[in-house]
Design a binder for these strands. Structure first.
Lengths: 116, 116
DNA sequence: ATATCATGACGTATATTTACGACATAGTCA
DNA sequence: TGACTATGTCGTAAATATACGTCATGATAT
């Protein structure tokens, strides 16, 4: 395009958007929930529990890894994928303050001109 | 594709992903922040405060409106866009429980086989 | 009525995402 | 060593998202 005007926004806005994008696909949400439910996970097993091919799951894992939301360490033949709990806590903070600002920001009241 | 296997996932996962997708672009994050900072907003004004054309901003507004995160009511010549505070609170709840589940889920410990 | 201004709808070009199959690589075990 | 298994890489096709210019519509005010 004429594409990706991302750079023109605040660092905060970009960061929030980046993480939101990581959660913007049900497969990635499912992967995180799966990792949270088990102590340790292996890429192949994850593919087995999702309605997607191994390749596609791997791609989703890469995206999550690119943001460092999950980590994978080679353990012999298999790989142990783990959640980055510290980062997830930070991200949760970001979302919380974003939502708090959004919901506590004064809503349209009867004193305004508009009708909502 | 061979596209959109979205249907194969949980309703919860889909819902979270849908909302996350809405926040997955800095422009939309900026729009919500802008609406939160003012009582009332008008589409034209929003475009004026973002580094995007009016058309593009309108498109982002439509996406947010499709999820009912914001609402727009015609007020004569202009339109009053407002945040849907109730829905935002619900969404915040969803995110919070998702993150809580993810961060309290047992992380890899030394008792596991893996090295993380 | 009609010029004007604010919004909304349409069409289009390009970038990115999603999804796979097929091949490459690297560790295990007989 | 050599078959086997588990992961990672590459290439590709189709769907979506992003961005914008241009035209249509509908209310206001002259």
């Amino acid at each position: 395009m004429t594409y990706a005007k991302t750079a023109a926004f605040t660092a905060d806005q970009q960061q929030l958007a980046r993480v939101a994008k990581a959660l913007a696909h049900p497969a990635r949400v499912a992967i995180i929930q799966l990792l949270a439910s088990k102590h340790t996970c292996i890429s192949g097993d994850i593919a087995a529990e999702l309605p997607l091919s191994r390749t596609t799951v791997f791609q989703h894992l890469q995206e999550l890894k690119a943001l460092d939301l999950i980590r994978g360490e080679i353990d012999g033949l298999t790989v142990c994928y783990c959640l980055n709990t510290e980062l997830l806590l930070q991200v949760q903070q970001q979302f919380t303050s974003f939502f708090t600002a959004a919901t506590t920001g004064a809503a349209c009241g009867p004193d305004d001109g508009c009708a909502c």
